[in-house]
Amino acid sequence: MDGVKKALWIVWKDVVCELRTKETLSSMFVFALLAIVIFNFAFQLRGDERVGLIAPGVLWVAFTFAGVLGLNRSFIKEKDHGCLEGLMLCPVDRSAIYAGKALGNLAFMLLMEAIALPMFAVFFNLPVLMPSLLLVILLGTVGFAGVGTLFSAISVNTKAREVMLPILFFPVLIPIVIAAVKSTAQIFDGVSFDQSMPWINLMLAFDVIFLVVSFLSFEYVVEG
């Protein structure tokens, strides 16, 4: 329980920093918006029924790229003044540090999505306030932030840190992208939710497996 408390203090610290500058959130949001605009020019999006074909893909590409932007900031900020070393000196399990950072990243991503989703609804003329869609977004984002936090800590140790994160992260993320896009498409198509269950289960499995693996292996990544 001590670890949970300290993880929450790390979240508090990240949230306070973010609320003061709003750097990460605003850049993530603008980037997601830009992705939608670029897609509009690339695919001539219109509010007709055909848009449903590519809308799920656009949504998740926007979330994915905007999310990577946020993840990159997450550990670069810790590295700037040696803060990560300061955290490592604290009498806290490394897994608690991982949990704190992952929760913070999850919170920022969900916030970005909460702002981007209504814009998306307007541009694509699609209903987005459906519990099933929100569940899919939540499951996809949990997996994203879970592995993403580990990979953010990995790539911050490399020479070309901003570039390395997507290169490492995207191949591993493919199952989440497939499952999220597929189930989002089914929801937009109005298919019964049962049909999406395999995808929901796949995302659940991904989330659980990689949260455990990341939780256990984080300490090796940050060890000095």
Binding site: K13, V16, C17, R20, T21, H81, G82, C83, G86, L89
Partner: peptide, 10 residues
């Protein structure tokens, strides 16, 4: 150490 371990925004 020579690094302060402090967060600029706090």
């Amino acid at each position: 150490s020579h690094q302060p371990y402090l967060y600029d925004d706090l």
